[in-house]
């Protein structure tokens, strides 16, 4: 009579496992806390207002858009007046099309934004930082960090510099997994999209410490440690092959700072220390999106990226400070 219950239960159980697994690998949606967003928007606004190149480019952009609008309106008028203009319509349309093509082909907005404006804003914000929109962190470096596997990798917006005399690189990284359905259609799902940073530390820990968000325990239970910070435990899991070193590194001060950062920004952060390398991954979505509009809107876009840079710096400083005190 109840024979049907067993397969239903089994099916439900299997479904639950699949849902948990899929959700654990799916990219997390990011929304930086509003108060933080406003704080960095204000910082970005000051930098934007003082950026002469940006002000010039914004003017050019506005003029160009006015011309494009004029051309489009002219097209509409030509269609309306074509019966009166006769074969002259063809000549005017041709001229307008050429003008439109010239405007689009000579579009150097992106070059000026990513070649001059954003590097200057970043450098004004933090002296010594180098920015290159067209470069990213090589996939081999990302693989070194031993995060989850992926089918497609892309990276840009490379930032490099030094922090406490230690070199670091960070960039936007996007990893995706490929799915092919029975009809042969291929789709990609985001695994991770955000900031990824690498710092070479002065000391070699000769172990790995992995701090990830609370999800599924992918490591064996033996490698998992409990940290004496309840708030930290609610958000992060720590895995290591040397529990004593991990406990020494994750002092109450370090864990509290990580929680403070999370509470302040709402950004998920994953940290890996593999021997003498510190890897940081922040679920921030895309960085340095930019489009010309009014300074207020531009500041909001830039402010988000500044908040991310600041968060990466706070995490790096937190760990570098602890590492300096650490006697391996």
């Amino acid at each position: 009579m109840y024979g049907f219950i067993f397969p239903i239960f089994s099916f439900f159980f299997l479904f639950l496992i699949i849902v948990i697994l899929v959700s654990s690998f799916k990219g997390k949606k990011v929304k930086i806390d509003d108060s933080v967003s406003d704080k960095y928007k204000d910082i970005a606004f000051k930098l934007i207002v003082g950026n002469e190149v940006l002000n010039e480019e914004r003017k050019k952009y506005r003029v160009k858009h006015l011309v494009i609008r004029f051309i489009l309106i002219s097209f509409a008028l030509l269609v309306f007046l074509s019966r009166y203009l006769g074969h002259l319509t063809f000549i005017i349309v041709l001229a307008l099309v050429i003008a439109l093509i010239v405007l689009i082909v000579t579009n150097n907005d992106k070059n000026s934004v990513y070649g001059e404006i954003i590097p200057k804003i970043i450098n004004d914000y933090m002296k010594g930082l180098k920015y290159n929109h067209y470069e990213g962190i090589n996939s081999s470096i990302y693989r070194e960090a031993r995060f989850e596997g992926y089918d497609r990798y892309s990276s840009d917006d490379l930032i490099s510099g030094t922090i406490n005399d230690q070199n670091f690189i960070m960039s936007e990284v996007h990893t995706e997994s490929r799915h092919t359905d029975s009809d042969g259609n291929t789709t990609y799902t985001t695994i991770f999209h955000g900031a990824f940073a690498k710092v070479t530390l002065k000391k070699d820990f000769k172990c790995f410490v992995n701090i990830i968000n609370n999800k599924i325990k992918l490591f064996s239970k033996d490698k998992y440690i409990t940290i004496d910070n309840e708030a930290f435990e609610k958000i992060y899991d720590v895995f290591t092959d040397d529990k004593i070193k991990a406990m020494r590194l994750l002092t109450p001060d370090v864990t509290t700072k990580m929680i403070d950062l999370y509470n302040e920004t709402g950004i998920y952060c994953e940290i890996k220390i593999i021997n003498n390398i510190l890897y940081i991954r922040l679920y921030t979505g895309s960085l340095f999106d930019f489009s010309f509009s009014n300074p207020e809107k531009e500041a909001r876009l830039i402010g988000k990226s500044l908040a991310v840079i600041d968060s990466v710096f706070k995490v790096m400083e937190n760990f570098i400070g602890e590492v300096e005190r650490f006697d391996v």
Binding site: I225, T226, D228, I244, M247, R248, D327
Partner: peptide, 21 residues
């Protein structure tokens, strides 16, 4: 000695956490 003291402290924290669990 400082290193060993730090290790003892870390071991103590580890033990307290495991016992609490």
């Amino acid at each position: 000695l400082t290193k060993v003291e730090n290790e003892i402290q870390a071991a103590r924290r580890l033990y307290i956490n495991d016992v609490t669990n």
